[in-house]
Design a protein around this nucleic acid. Structure first.
Length: 1157
RNA sequence: GCCCAUGUGGCGGAAUUGGUAGACGCAGCAGACUCAAAAUCUGCCGUUCGCAAGGGCGUGAAGGUUCGAUUCCUUUCGUGGGCACCA
């Protein structure tokens, strides 16, 4: 019986799927464990062998934890909004939804082949309305929040309003604009627009005009982390600064907490370092300088107030507001010229020419408050407007840039650090003792910092100040394929949609080009953008209405109470009860309801949005389409009673009066003839369309009716926000959705997030260091502050998988030039030269060139008989990528190559090595389609099986390290699995395993393996775990051990790594019911028994002066003196001693013995 | 320029706390089985001197600490990654 991996793997994968073996419950007595992969963007290219590396690691760990008795959440989903799908749509006209769907199907089929233990019932997709409904909802929560610096957390806008009404913003500086200050009285006097504008400056998501990174080629703005060296990260298009209205996340308010949180999480140093760098916290002081003969003050930020006496000039950013005010008449012209020059320079030029020194003197002087020196004020590009105060005090002896500037413009340099400064370059030391420094003379620089700050604060001319490099994160994109903002603009006021109006679905478009004025494609859909409503009530009325909402709702109920048999509620608490009831109800679908819901959801029927169990004025219909005011009722049997019928009737009457139409079906109709049912519903929907609904639009609907815009009193010209959210919106919280993926009442039930808590292990690449990982930390902190989750760091431990690099192969094509009348060079025969000869030609080896030239000449004669005039005058070689799939090691498969690219090389000729082989060149590069070095996992799984593939990926090296892919080695792992198989079944003899009692030696092998696998799996050292399995199987094979007592526990150990073969063999040796790979509940995962490994003696390495010379077997329970005796008696030791006495003998129990001579 | 990671056979890598450097696998070489191939099995496999026994050298380089260093410290070089007029 041989190891038929393909059969076995298909069988078990089907079985796992059918029995839902990996379904996870939120309700378990077992301890929880959350293992998460960074979900993929489903690109069109499919998976290559680099992608599953992290997935395999996390799968092994999940399976291991499951066997160890944990309730493991191990989900997968897709980050399915994003630029590439939209770019593809622009090029091909295919809707992103379609291509995304297709790509997901490819990914899924590839993933399935590898045998992962994901709970696919929890799959999420960020582009699914059921998902982005909650992305929008969370956005609204953040919109409704501000950061209270006093409590250091996010709070609701309502609390801010309360504060404003009692004390203005006296104690709460406006983070958006520090200059805004007002009292309670002033606040109350502001009009609606003014108030809203101020609130916007506090909100944690806010809209404002600002400089953004505009990428013309992509037609969108980019976040700072999406711009690399002045070009877009995706596509490398130029990026320019542009003023536009944008949405932002006020991440700067969280800078300190994001920094502090790093201390509490297990990320690699490199990762933490990158985040720290990005946040860029620096401590220093801000101080004011008086400007000579002027009213103005100059505020600078410095981290080195100790160098105040070394200030030789000041520099302002060219954009600084003081520039115009202080420039002297004499310098005006020059400054203007300089400003024109600065404006002409693109961001890219500025970055590219960092070393170029430019600047201009303003003619103004600042006064050093400590020694009254007059300090010239310059402007220069190298000072950035956006950081600190946009102005610096320059200390040329201590700062290299200041030094270069001073040298360039001949500004005299003051030395305050004595010998530390050599006049040749600046020295940014903090070690020096200060000189020429007034009251700081003789003080060390480190100490002087706080002394200087104290003095500055004492004089009231400045204060201690912390600065951050991080900017608020741009949160809008002028793009189509993303979450629409649930925001409506009315007279410049951003009005959030109500929660029950979510999701605001992405409308269908046919064209993906940008809209007018740099807006996104959505701006082109006028029907969607413009919302025309009847004239609106005043803002004050609006407020009153909002408050009266609930009362109004219950008024309706009261009014109608007499007409119905006690079904409706009458008071506010009861109304709330109804809501709670609806929430409960929504979870349980009857069979018939389930059938029809599958056909109604997601606007499948005539594009109409249906809601299920959506409360309307105290009554909960089964399904309702709010836009069409159509209710669908599916009646269970109990509705057949007389009493029930009259009751239903009363309800129907009430609804009819309020403009609702109802259509009802029986369970049987739905179950047996869903088609007719849907036709009837569709007819109704279209009827409703035609009827006059004006009477219904008088807007006295209760809350939650879906048209609450009327309630908020907006009207006139009202437009939707047309930009969409960036790629990182959905990924900032998706890990929470997995915990409770089907909840349509909330983004994630608090019970679920309390149970699952933090992600215990998060596995993914390093490329998300300052993007996704920072934003998800931010969102989690905000949700924590608002009380929606119980932890403020999402990921407890992060493991970064390394990149798998491609191993490229090259062929060398002869590049030759032929002289001859009207000769078309492109007709020359193709000649490919094997590696070693090509190398010689490249290094201009004359012999090789001559020889190859001869071969080329022959070819030429053959190809063009009769053309005697042709002669070769130059040859060289061109290196070209060739597809790795038809290179065996380094040897090219010639036939395969000739068929490549539709036979482009069908007629190619070759110059071989001496042994008749064509050898290719090799280089390690990034894996990419264009380099023909990608390896598709499907092919390997087909050829060697998923188990081999999984173990080989792990065997390649540490998960966290980058390493080149080499398919060749996979055979070793495959051999190992076959060897394992042969411990159970021989190809010829069949069954060889037996039930004999294991010997001590065999048990020792097993338990040594148990111990090592436990340790290695826990510390993510999967490569050494695989080699441990190999050692174990080698040992057992050597011992000819085929005993079930040993082999069965081994299968348990192996099952996380190679689940299919373990399951198969497990079920074969335990025919009735093997739990291996099938049932973690009944798992009897082996435990390590240290007693079995206890030895009485050990072969000690004995070294002389630290060099091992021999081994001696010594009992473990022996004294130092006895050891010395034994060692000294040893022949080898005596030989080295040459009769002398040793100086010292070092004996470390269980380690070694060292004799020092 | 600054920060982080990293450097071990022909190759991927192992050595978990300072204690036998090179586990395990690939590639290679020699052999067994076979008509042959595949599969499988056995042996060799850092380098150098030596017939051998045995010895010298050896973890990028140089120095140091230590009885003992791939591991700790200092200096330096290479590679990969991040940040970069951030005052």
């Amino acid at each position: 019986m041989e190891y038929r991996f393909n059969e076995i793997e298909q069988k078990w994968q089907a079985k796992w799927k059918e029995n839902k073996v990996y379904k996870v419950s939120n309700d378990s007595a077992k301890p929880k464990y959350y293992v998460l992969d960074m979900f993929p963007y489903p690109s069109g290219a499919g998976l290559h062998v680099g992608h599953p590396l992290g997935y395999i690691a996390s799968d092994i760990y999940s399976r291991y934890k499951r066997l160890k008795g944990f309730n493991v959440l191990h989900p997968m989903g897709y980050d399915s909004f994003g630029l590439p799908a939209e770019q593809y749509a622009l090029e091909t006209g295919q809707h992103p939804a379609v291509t995304t769907e297709r790509n997901i199907a490819t990914f899924r089929s590839q993933l399935d082949k590898i045998g992962f233990s994901y709970d696919w019932d929890r799959e999420v997709r960020t582009s699914d309305p059921d998902f982005y409904k909650w992305t929008q909802w969370i956005f609204l929560q953040i919109f409704d929040s501000w950061f209270n610096r006093a409590t250091n957390k996010a709070e609701r806008i309502a609390s801010l309003l309360e504060i404003f009404e009692t004390e203005g913003n006296l104690h709460h500086d406006c983070p958006g604009d520090k200059s805004i200050q007002f009292s309670a009285g002033e606040w109350k006097a502001f009009n609606e627009k003014e108030q809203q504008d101020i609130l916007m400056d506090y909100r944690l998501t806010f809209s404002s005009y600002g400089e953004v990174n505009w990428c013309e080629a992509l037609g969108t703005v980019l976040a700072n982390d999406e711009v690399v060296n002045g070009v877009s990260e995706r596509g490398g298009h130029p990026v320019e600064k542009k003023k536009m209205r944008q949405w932002y996340l006020r991440i700067t308010e969280y800078a300190d907490r994001l920094l502090e949180g790093l201390e509490r999480i297990d990320f690699s140093d490199a990762m933490k370092e990158m985040q720290k760098n990005w946040i860029g916290k620096s401590q220093g002081a801000e101080m004011d300088f008086i400007i000579k003969d002027q009213q103005e003050h100059l505020k600078v930020y410095t981290t080195r107030p100790d160098t105040i006496f070394g200030v030789d000039f000041m520099v302002l950013a060219p954009e600084h507001e003081l520039v115009n005010k202080i420039t002297s008449a004499g310098q005006k012209k020059e400054i203007e010229t300089y400003l024109t020059y600065v404006k002409s320079r693109s961001e890219r030029e500025r970055l590219a020419e960092v070393k170029q020194i430019t600047g201009c003197f303003t003619g103004a002087y600042a006064i050093n408050p400590f020694d009254d020196r007059e300090i010239p004020i310059w402007i220069a590009e190298y000072v950035l407007a956006g950081y600190g105060t946009g102005a610096i005090m320059a200390v040329p002896c201590g700062d290299q840039r200041d030094f270069a500037f001073a040298k360039h413009f001949n500004i005299p340099i003051t030395n305050i650090i004595g010998d530390y400064y050599n006049g040749e370059e600046a020295n940014p030391t903090k070690e020096a003792i200060l000189q020429n420094s007034g009251f700081l003379n003789g003080v060390s620089m480190k100490g002087a910092i706080s002394i200087a700050i104290a003095k500055i604060e004492g004089l009231g001319i400045g204060n201690r100040k912390v600065n951050f490099r991080m900017r608020d994160a741009g949160f809008s994109r002028q793009r189509y394929w993303g979450e629409p903002f649930p925001i409506i603009w009315s007279d410049g006021i951003a009005i959030p949609l109500d929660a029950d109006e979510l999701p605001l679905e992405l409308p269908h478009v046919d064209k993906y080009g940008p809209g007018p004025n740099g807006e996104g494609p959505l701006a082109n859909i006028e029907d969607w953008v413009n919302i025309n409503l009847t004239p609106n009530p005043s803002p004050k009325e609006r407020e009153t209405r909002l408050q009266g909402e609930a009362e109004l709702a219950s008024d309706h109920l009261l009014e109608n109470k007499k007409d119905e048999p006690g079904y409706y509620n009458s008071s506010l608490p009861e109304w709330q009860n109804t809501l709670a009831f609806a929430k409960e109800n929504r979870k349980e679908l009857t069979e018939a309801e389930g059938v029809i819901w599958q056909k109604l959801r997601d606007r499948q029927l005539d594009g109409c949005k249906f809601r299920r169990q959506h409360p309307i004025a105290g009554y909960i219909p089964d399904f309702v389409c709010l836009e069409k005011k159509l209710i669908i009722e599916i009646d269970g049997e109990y509705h057949n009673s007389e009493e029930q019928k009259s009751f239903d009737e009363a309800r129907a009457n009430w609804l009819a009066e309020n403009g609702f139409e109802m259509i009802r079906f029986t369970n049987e109709e739905v179950k047996n003839n869903i088609k007719d049912v849907l036709i009837k519903v569709s007819q109704k929907l279209n009827e409703v369309e035609k009827t006059d609904r004006s009477k219904n639009e008088k807007s006295n609907q209760p809350s939650g009716s879906g048209s609450s815009l009327l309630w908020r009193g907006v009207g006139g010209e009202v437009k939707r926000e047309t930009s969409t959210m960036p790629g990182y919106a959905g990924s900032s919280w998706y890990f929470l959705r997995y915990m409770d993926p089907h909840n349509d009442q909330t983004f994630c039930d608090r019970k679920a997030s309390d149970y699952w808590g933090q992600v215990d292990i998060y596995i993914g690449g390093t490329e998300h260091a300052v993007g996704h990982l920072l934003y998800s930390r931010l969102w989690t902190k905000i949700l924590f502050d608002l009380g929606y989750v119980s932890h403020d760091e999402p990921f407890k431990k992060l493991v970064n998988q390394g990149m798998i690099q491609g191993s490229s192969r090259f062929v060398y094509r002869l590049a030759w030039s032929v002289t001859g009348e009207d000769f078309d060079q492109s007709l020359l025969p193709q000649l490919f030269i094997s590696k070693s000869i090509a190398d010689k030609i490249i290094s201009e080896d004359e012999e090789a060139i001559k020889e190859t030239g001869g071969i080329a000449k022959e070819l030429l004669i053959k190809a063009f008989p009769g053309r005697e005039d042709l002669s070769i005058f130059r040859i060289s070689v061109i290196e070209t990528h060739v597809d790795v799939s038809f290179v065996n090691g380094v040897e090219l498969d010639i036939n395969h190559f000739k068929n490549w690219r539709n036979g482009e090389y069908a007629d190619a000729q070759f110059v071989f090595e001496n042994d008749g082989k064509y050898i290719c060149g090799v280089e390690t590069e990034k894996m990419s389609k264009s380099k023909y070095n990608t390896v598709n996992p499907d092919v390997l799984v087909q050829k060697f099986g998923a188990d081999t593939f999984r173990m080989y990926e792990m065997f390649l090296g540490p998960v966290e390290q980058s390493k080149p892919w080499d398919t060749k080695g996979i055979e070793g792992v495959h051999r190992f699995l076959r060897k394992l198989w042969r411990l159970f079944y021989d190809d010829l003899k069949g069954k060889v395993w037996n039930e004999d009692k294991a010997t001590d030696a065999e048990l020792k092998v097993l338990h040594r393996t148990i111990k090592k696998i436990d340790e290695d799996t826990e510390r993510f050292s999967f490569n050494t775990a695989v080699s441990t399995f190999m050692i174990c199987v080698n040992d057992l094979a050597d011992m000819k051990c085929h005993k079930k007592e040993i082999l069965e526990p081994l299968l348990f150990l192996l099952s996380p790594y190679a689940p299919h073969i373990s399951a198969e063999l497990g079920s074969l040796i335990n025919a009735k019911s093997s739990p291996i790979g099938e049932d973690a509940e009944r798992s009897v995962y082996p435990t390590f028994n240290p007693a079995l490994l206890v030895e009485s003696a050990k072969e000690y390495p004995v070294s002389i002066n630290g060099k091992v010379r021999t081994n001696i077997n010594i009992a473990l329970d022996i004294t130092q003196a006895d050891v010395e005796q034994i060692v000294l008696k040893n022949e080898v030791v005596q030989k080295w001693l040459e009769g002398k006495a040793p100086k010292k003998i070092i004996y470390v129990k269980n380690k070694m013995v060292n004799v020092v001579i």
